[in-house]
Amino acid sequence: MALESEDIRKTFGYFTALGGVTLKVKRGEFLALFGRNGAGKTTFLKIAATLVKPTQGRLRIEGIDVREQPEEARRRIGFLSHNTYLYRDLTPIENLRFFGRLYGVQDLDERIHSLIDRVGLQRRASDPVRSFSRGLHQRLGVARVMLHDPSLILLDEPYTGLDANAVDTLNQMLDEAISAGKTIILTTHDLEQGLRAASRAIIIDRGKIVFTGDARDPATRDAYSQYIRVGVTP
């Protein structure tokens, strides 16, 4: 199992962001999480990325209990949100070198250059990130996520603010990751992008999983459109 969660709950003060999520994701799966803003999908992803501690419940990443060995779990996770966590004053190469050293990546320089090539930033490799457009920024963000060769890739609304070119690059890299046997969990409210390559789709509402289905099954589309219209699926 790439990810196993058991009755994960998270409350912020009086607000229940997650009300008991139990989910199993197999290795090599591409899971799309749908839901409206504030439905809890980002909170779940942040818990899976060990950024947020759940109020209750157990979580295993690749069989590792997150509570017991958080560092080991983090080593296997790549997390990308609409924030790229890159230092604006550093160049792409410097940014990647820094994160690579934090993760203890082997043959770092080689890896950095191949990644920079793949995301198409060769010509901008020594400009500070400050001068980058949103699309370029996100491409480098993708490179940062892939840098330490994570087996579980978590993507939180990765398409936000991307131009068509960058979307293509991102999709291409996701396809490559899938064929390399990696597990992907993606949240979005863009149905088309979400279902494009996903194998399973889940809808979260008010902190609970309200629908699970095959991404290629037309019933999933119906459930989603109904969810958007009515709120809660039957």
Binding site: N83, T84, Y85, R88, Y103
Partner: peptide
Amino acid sequence: NDCLQGLLLA
């Protein structure tokens, strides 16, 4: 740019 979060992911 939320870099602290990036450090917490490491």
